[in-house]
Design a protein around this nucleic acid. Structure first.
Lengths: 169, 169
DNA sequence: CTTATTCGGATAATTAATATCCGAATTATA
DNA sequence: TATAATTCGGATATTAATTATCCGAATAAG
């Protein structure tokens, strides 16, 4: 049971986009360079978030990515679901219907209680992630970071973040 | 992000062992046959639970498995951890230390808040599973099942469950 | 209209999960 | 007591999922 590494990258990338001035954006290559990760795989995660409506992409020269909605409306669960999928982690294969004492399908109107227990646990997991937004993370970063680091970050963003074109890729 | 299929089998197997009269047990092959799953892979899950102290194994003729402690003390999280491992699903690779604005290790005394948020979510998941014991599941099965099915189950267990030897494999 | 730039979907390489086999240990029987 | 049958335990192939990469489609600037 493990969460795809791409989720980590996607969250960090989204958090960085949240720090951009309005109207500006970053291309996939710049996001990868900022985080020191392979560009093509970072691009794949951005693609997934774009398809989910979390970020908006512009194609062509001066293209790139920006957040598609306010940071308060983007949660860690949104990003996890977009990148890793929303499928249940526990997959009930109905083995209670197998073997010499297997239940007949018509006697299985009630769901398997084992599957129910796991579904509840997963819901608790999702609820916990859904309670944290990009805005929450930004607040913590501002509190925790050294002033020098914030300055370096701003300088880098000012150099790399360009005004985006308005096309909808 | 998905939970190993072996977890499902292990939980069902443990629940069946809980239905055995005291002093009796089932061998791995019988557990696999009961659930209609491949015997060698079922054996692997039993091995994992044995190593974790959830079930007790006896080797040699009239060997087999039984629960190692009362059903009230065995939770779904115990079984999941034994079979799937207790490792964190979200693995923080500290990418905040990478790239042109990477933090220096000495500035990372505070944990990455993204990792913290995921750790909290996983804890909620674990807590939820830890709140359900094999005894809880047994109660639900007794309530939900058709009398005819319970009878068939008891007959099968009486035929297959043998008194175990006392060696500690 | 041409060219440079960027995203999007399709394609390989690697790792983890799934399924299987053989050897070590134990008990019952002769 | 020796032998053989039985069962668990760790090591070994196979399959699926994750990770990483490449090339074509679309857009804007010159």
């Amino acid at each position: 049971m493990q969460i795809s590494k791409g989720v980590e990258w996607a969250v960090h990338a989204a958090a960085l986009l949240n720090g951009l001035p309005s109207g500006r954006g970053l291309k996939a290559e710049a996001l990868a360079r900022y985080h020191g990760v392979p560009a093509p795989y970072m691009a794949k995660q951005m693609q997934a978030m774009s398809k989910a409506g979390i970020i908006r992409s512009s194609r062509g020269a001066h293209g790139g990515y920006r957040l598609a909605k306010p940071a308060e409306q983007i949660t860690l669960w949104d990003i996890t679901a977009a990148v890793d999928g929303k499928g249940q982690a526990f997959r009930c294969t109905e083995i209670r219907q197998n073997g010499p004492c297997g239940l007949k399908p018509e006697d299985c109107r009630r769901p398997c209680q084992i599957a129910v227990a796991f579904a509840r646990a997963e819901q608790a997991f999702r609820d916990s992630l859904a309670a944290v937004s990009l805005a929450d993370l930004a607040g913590q970063v501002l509190n925790d970071s050294e002033p020098g680091h914030l300055l370096a970050m701003m300088n880098w963003l000012n150099a790399e973040a360009e005004p985006l074109s308005d096309n909808r890729a």
